[in-house]
């Protein structure tokens, strides 16, 4: 299921997350202007690589691993 996720996209996601305190996948997809399904996959990979983490403030967000 991870076909099509490039290192370049993951870099873009990390770069965007560096500019905000937290975000939802939807916000990331809009910011990097890539289809959301693909961004979801990139975020899953980044989570497994321990580069991002999840927080819950009434709804769930992602952020760069502190």
């Amino acid at each position: 299921m991870t076909e099509g996720v490039s290192e370049e996209l993951k870099e873009k996601v990390l770069k965007y997350l560096g500019t905000v305190s937290k975000a939802k996948n939807r916000d990331v997809a809009r910011a990097v202007e890539v289809e959301k399904a693909l961004v979801d996959k990139a975020i899953a990979e980044l989570a497994k690589e321990d580069k991002i983490e999840y927080i819950y403030l009434g709804t769930s967000y992602i952020q760069l691993k502190q």
Partner: peptide
């Protein structure tokens, strides 16, 4: 409640 706790790769 609160705080960030979990296992690697998961947000749930």
């Amino acid at each position: 409640h609160g705080g960030i706790v979990g296992v690697t790769g998961y947000g749930s």
